[in-house]
Design a protein around this nucleic acid. Structure first.
Lengths: 143, 143
DNA sequence: ACGCTTATTGATAATGGTTGTCAAAATCAC
DNA sequence: GTGATTTTGACAACCATTATCAATAAGCGT
């Protein structure tokens, strides 16, 4: 039986209050900073539960850290993420769904799943960076 | 100045001889198995160099491990990967490129990069799995 | 409200991939 | 060959994450 604890609720709320993706460690720090004595292991467990129940989205940062986010859309969707400030836009992508399925089938693959995320600089950060002159630590286009 | 060592060459060749993506650890094991006394740290360094010079592709496995592969196509491309045997097909995806660029622009994002990978079961592994009657969590040795 | 059962917590150890350290070895320009 | 300098590699350090397990607390039936 699944029990309700203030710890799980705290994690859920902290995640809701967070703009963009956040790591388990960072969320734990945030909680501690606001006075919560919640344990690190519990934060990991709560995030894992939220992710597997579909209440949160998770993805691997380019550095290999797992990041989480409360997702507003319940269905399948993808993300457009600002690599500077973390601002995230949820995007539906039927086009891409169809493409992924098609490509897989075309090569005899079954049970196709896909990882599709777009990283960029949001309008605000674009302005900041341009103002700064040249901060191009731009890495990527993997895929 | 960059120097040429047999170690770097060994890593490059081992990667070329590998079908699909492989982890640094697995590649190190493979090299040792074939009699090479190359060190683990060196394998990591060599793979990192190859990846950043564009001679190899890298991606994070769902488990958070970094995987590498010698890429035959020099340009930008994506991958269709068998999650059971590691078989990989390089796929060009102009459609997706256009979509990613469009979505980013639509939301005011600039410098858009994207991570697009499709995981599935290749034709062969599909048959095996069906024969086994098991359909989930088929995790096999990839090295 | 009271136990009782049992899921959950959390401090800590363990795990495992990856990176840093630094003396020894190897490479390349000359 | 000589020497400056890069590279190597055994091992320690790191860091995110997971396992351990005694102590705690949620929620059932009463």
């Amino acid at each position: 039986m699944k029990r309700n604890t203030w710890q799980r609720e705290a994690v859920r709320e902290a995640l809701d209050d967070t703009e963009g993706f956040i790591s388990a460690q960072a969320l734990h720090s945030t909680l501690h900073a606001s006075g919560s004595p919640i344990g690190l292991a519990t934060v990991y467990r709560a995030l894992g539960d939220l992710a597997s129940s579909g209440e949160a989205d998770s993805l691997q940062s380019p550095e290999g850290e797992a990041l989480y986010r409360a997702c507003s859309t319940t269905g399948h969707h993808h993300h457009l993420i600002c690599r500077n400030c973390g601002l995230t836009v949820e995007i539906a992508a039927d086009e891409v769904e169809a493409w992924a399925k098609g490509v897989a089938a075309e090569h005899g693959f079954t049970q196709a799943a896909h990882v599709v995320d777009v990283f960029g600089l949001c309008a605000n950060c674009t302005k900041l960076v341009v103002a700064d002159g040249a901060d191009s630590k731009v890495e990527a286009d993997r895929g």
